[in-house]
Each structure stands twice: as C-alpha cells, then as structure tokens.
Nucleic acid binder design. Sequence first.
DNA 1: CTAGGGTTAG
Length: 636
Amino acid sequence: MNGTAILRALINNKQHCRLLLSFSTSPLLSHFSYNIIDIGTCIATLQSCAHTTNLSKGKELHTYMLKSGFLASPQAITSLINMYSKCTLINHALKVFNFPTHHDKNVFAYNAIIAGFVANGFSKHGFGLYRQMRHMGIVPDKYTFPCVIRACGDDVEDFEAKKIHGLLYKFGLDLDVFVGSALVNTYLKFGLVVEAHEVFDELPVRDVVLWNSMINGYAQIGKFEEALEVFQRMVENGVVPCRYAVTGVLSIFSMVEDFHNGRAVHGFVIKMGYDSGVVVLNVLIDMYGKCKCASDALNVFDVMDEKDIFSWNSIISVHERCGDHYGTLRLFDRMLGNRVQPDLVTVTAVLPACTHLAALMHGREIHGYMIVNGLGKDENSSFDDVQLNNALMDMYAKCGNMRDARVVFDHMREKDVASWNIMITGYGMHGYGDEALDTLSQMCQAQMIPNEVSFVGLLSACSHAGMVKDGLEFLAQMESKYGVSPSIEHYTCVIDMLCRAGKLVEAYDLVLAMPFKADPVGWRALLAACRLHKDTDLAEIAASKVIELEPGHCGNYVLMSNVYGVAGRYEEVSKMRHTMKQQNVKKRPGCSWIELMTGVHVFITGDRTHPQTDYIYAGLNSLAAVLHEHEYVPLI
DNA sequence: CTAGGGTTAG
C-alpha cells in the first residue's frame, strides 16, 4: 500500500482526523518529503481539511500545489474551491476558481463554487454563476440543482424555482431525491403546499431527508398539524426517524407546548440511543422549557456528560422563561464556574433576570463583561445587536438608573421600536414625564413609528407625573395623529392617571363612556383613589365590580374594608372580614426584600425581628420627615 | 474532485 492508498482508505472510512494526523507524522508523508506527495494525496487531504475545516493545513497544501504545478489539474482546483468554501473563505475560493490556468472550467468546479456561495449566504452570486455556467454551455447535473434551488429560496425578488423545476425534466433529474428535497424545502418556505406535495408524490424513492424536508417545511410556516401528520405517515411507511427527524418533531412539540408527546419522544430518544448526542438533548431541554417544565429540563441537563454553549444557553433561558430569576443567575454562575464562555445569547437571557430582581450590581457586572468581550458589537455588519442592547437598557431603566440607560441608548447605532419604548416607559416609570414626551417626539423625528406599547408607556408617564392635560390629549389624538387606536390598556392608564390626580368623577365617567368594559386594574385604581379621597359611595360601586371580576384577590377586600374604616362604618368592616372568611380569601402579609453584599434581607409587614430594626426605623423616619418637608403626600 | 434535512436568546 502506498501513501495515497492509505489516505484513500482513511477517507472512505471518514477518519479525517486520523488522516490529518498521519499526514503530518508519517515519515513517508512528512514535511521533509513534500516533493514525493502526488496530486491524489493532495486532493484526498484537502477533502479532510474541508470536513474538519482545517484552514491552516489547507492553505499549506494550496501553497505546495501551486509550487508543484498541480493547479493545472481540474480535480485539484475543485478540491481547493471546496476546502475554502467549507472554511467560509469564499473570496479565496473565488480566487482559485478564477485562477489564470483554470480556463476550462468544468461542471465540477462550477458546482463547488456555486455551493460555496450559496452555503455562505451569497445566494444571488451563486445564482449568477449558475447563469454564467449555462451561458458557457456547460450542462448542469444532479449536483448543481440542489444548491441552485436552495438559492431560489433565499432570493425572494424573482422566484425562479418553478422555472428550474420545469428545466429538470429536460435533464432527466425530476425524479432525483436530492433535487426533490431541495424543491420541497424551497416551495414550502413560500407556502406553496400544492407544489411541494406534487414533487413529494412523484418521487419514487423517499428517504428520511425528504420526509424531514416535508415535516420541517410545514413546521416553518406554522402548519404544525400537517407536519405531525407527515411524521406519522413516515413512521407508518416504515421509515425509522433519525436524529434529525427527532429534533424536528421535538421542536414542533415545543412550539405547540405538547408536553405529553414531547415526553413520549424523549422515551424514543432513549430507546434509540440518541441521548448520546448533544444536539438531541439540547432540543429536549428546550422542549421541556417551552412546556414550562424547568425541573424536567434540568434533569436532562444535569445528566449530560458533554455540554456545549447551546446546552447552557437553553437551560438558562428555560429558567428565565419560567420566571425563576434566581435559578437563571445560579445557572449563569455555574456556567462561569465551569469555565464556559458566555456569549451574546447567554447574556441576553441573563439580563432580564437582573431586571426582574432589580439586581443592578449583577447587571452592571454583565455590562462590564460585555464591554471586555465585545459582546453586542457585531463585527460582521458593524452594527450592534439591538436586542442585547435593548435588554441592557431595560435593565438600567427598570433598576431606576435612567442615566446609564440613556448612555446605552445614545451609543446604539441602530435602534428599533422597542429601544424607544424602553426609554419612554423607563422615564414614565420614574416620574420623568417631560423626558418621556420629549422621547416620543424625538422618536417621530427619527422616522420611527410609535406603536401601542409606546402609548402605554407615555400615558403611564403622564399618570406618574400628574400631567393630566397631556395624558387626555394623547388619548384623544393617538388614533388620528399616530394611527394607534386606544386599547383597554390605554384607557386603564388614563383612569389611573385621573384617579391619582383625585379626579374621581372624571375617572368614573371615562369608565362608563369608554368602548371597553373596565378591567380589574382600572376598577382597583378607582377603589384605591376612593379610599384616599373618602368617597364611600363610588368605592362601593368599584369594589363590587372588582370583587365580581376577581373574587379570590385579597387586596380588593382589604381596600374596601379600609374605605369603610376611614368612613367610620365599623360594622361594614367586620362584614367585609366575614365575607373574606366565607370566600376563604386569606390576606397574605406584605413582604419585600433587598439584596446586599451580605445576602438577602426579608421584611414582612410590621416585622421587627431584623437585628438592625432600630437603625432601619430611624432611617425610615428621617426619610418620612424629608418627604413631609417637601409636602409629599403618599398616594396608595 | 462537486449535492439535500438540525438545535439556543429577545
């Protein structure tokens, strides 16, 4: 056996890593004896470089082949193009393709360069090279069309898939399963169900990949039932689902939140031994998470012996989605402890946990990590990651640090509606009414169109800042001037605003006049305002409504009994207490907590058990004195 | 020498 034969044997057995190892260590094939490496060996080794994306070795071979005059060989050229394409260096691939000695460009070279462009996201260029190839009179083959058809799916402007489909009969490729899969994918991507089915039904041989194309294609356009029907048909036809098929159905079950079927697939995964692969387990974690079963997801995660960045990001997002913010932070900590580098996805999942816990210090640490590691700066497009920066802004805004939120906002080169809304909402939340209004007009100046969320933020800003006139004006004009029709949420903001301003009659009039039935939030705002302004009659109306809508909500009863208490109607107070007992509504004591360096400190209403209680109350009293000095009257 | 299907955040 000579060197080339050994390498060929390794390639055929897909032992690319061993091949590259033997290439550099075997005395026969070492660097000292480069001159005895023949062209076949070079091609075989390039294939391995392509598979393992070993760019440095590939480049080394390129130099050697150039020196040895191997670039006269079309086979060598094709292998080089393929190697550079797989290593995502498409410009290098094109340079080889256009190399001066490469005059007789054959179908192999074209197939390789077209595939390279399409796979690297330059479908238009790929399609252009296909046209060039046809123009040169080169006959496309069964390797050409899958890529070209995939390129049609990326290029929405002029949909060529049907034309290509028609051409297939001419070349006798209409029954090729590779070509057919590509057609099914592209057709379903554009919702052309009939066309996809035509292709599928005509094909004499249906392999797993073709079935998967149908299943995933349906799933992509949201036709989950159809996708699952196809899956069932596949199984009935005796096709055993491979790992890819399993990930496909699992992602469907996670989207429709079908826990039972998802768990059944988990069983199948174990039965088939698919639980040895990271990807299938990652999808299982995601599925359990989407079904709100964080503990099941964690069970899968904990027994994985190999965890990749997807595993960590998935398990972290699962906890955040389930509202377990501490769990999110714990897992993030565990990730760092395992020396796994968080990426942009990790950080976008962890920041909301800091936001919900108002954990400004944690959030700030993450911001620092982002700066050090260049996260959020997209080096490919020179644009920032909008979502990540939005999450960062939101964290600062919700933690009450509008200055830093503004700094992030001002540094963003690209902003979306959410970015503006976060600023408007943040300003409103902390009583900066004028700033919220200014931000809306800046938003309009920047040609950004405000949406429903913008106006919820804006109206609540008016509410918190007591800007009644502005708030009413926005409610009246938002439809005609901004094209956003007011929803129940907007009306609730305005009711809240009028209540806070003590305009109870106006608030009640709005409740009666508005085109929606008031929700519990609106009624409760009215009830609370009635307590403050001692309007027992209106309070009774509001209370009856809110208790009718939310019979199990203890706060409603407490508010009403407080109204009676203020009015001196103590027999009504005890009646209220009685109703609560009857309805089995329990008032849970108010509880709040604060996180300091030393740990979490929890306080319950009237609680004097903290070791520093005296000190805390002294602080509270001096704060109350300052408030009194500024004639601040607490509302609710 | 060249080809079709896959997972994560908001």
